[in-house]
Design a protein around this nucleic acid. Structure first.
Lengths: 117, 117
DNA sequence: ACGGAAAATAACCAAACAGTTATACAACAC
DNA sequence: GTGTTGTATAACTGTTTGGTTATTTTCCGT
């Protein structure tokens, strides 16, 4: 298993939670402190800290420092890795149809004979 | 919470497992029966059936019928939904930089004064 | 040095997950 | 109908997850 796959596990798992996705949306608009991030949610501060830890382990965010605050910011690289997997799938999928199209085209031009014949 | 968010939860959660991602890669190349899908893995058939159920609930695959076989095929629509979220994030993120660039540009042309001054 | 604010950590709990084995079901072959 | 193949379901188990409250740590202000 490639090393990146481990990160992929964590990245997709991190994205599977609506609270965490909302946090990412917020961070896409700029850095924010834990309490700022926690404010919109009906949830304790430690719960948010846990979500942030999940996001950080997945490489989706990073932590800064500003006095007592630990502002988080989005790390878009991890998003790219996730996207790459989706693109890989889509590419494989489309390649298959391209191959099928090629076969059909071949059949048409050679007069509906079997490929090996 | 929008209705699509529920699917997003399930879709990303489904993608978070390496066995399931491998199954999707396999299915991207064409339909396959359960036993075909199970073959590469050191895992029981019921375990694979469970993974397939997770993938199906997420809308990532669908089930056909061919005698005793229940061939699965990839459903790329769900991939699009997942991709849309990533794109949304990226768009928000880039919009912010665009806004920042605009501010910097404004500062440059007006002679480095504060925006409100 | 002390008090307070921001955040992290610990300890705990219920629910969900990912696997197992054993069993049941469905559809074909004879 | 009987046996066989392919798949699903049931029941169980250890681990992980997502939340809680209580406590601790870190840093600032005075």
């Amino acid at each position: 298993m490639p090393a990146a796959a481990l990160k992929l596990d964590e990245t997709f798992a991190a994205l599977a939670d609506p609270t965490r996705r909302a946090i990412l949306r917020r961070l896409a608009q700029g850095e924010a402190s834990v309490s700022e991030l926690a404010a919109p949610f009906d949830m304790s501060q430690p719960a948010i800290s846990k979500h942030l830890k999940v996001l950080e382990r997945a490489g989706l965010i990073s932590t800064g420092q500003d006095a007592q605050r630990r502002p988080r910011k989005l790390e878009p690289e991890a998003l790219v890795i996730a996207n790459d997997f989706l693109i890989e799938l889509r590419t494989l999928f489309e390649a298959r149809y391209a191959a099928l199209d090629a076969v059909l085209e071949e059949l048409k031009t050679t007069g509906a004979k079997a490929p090996g014949a």
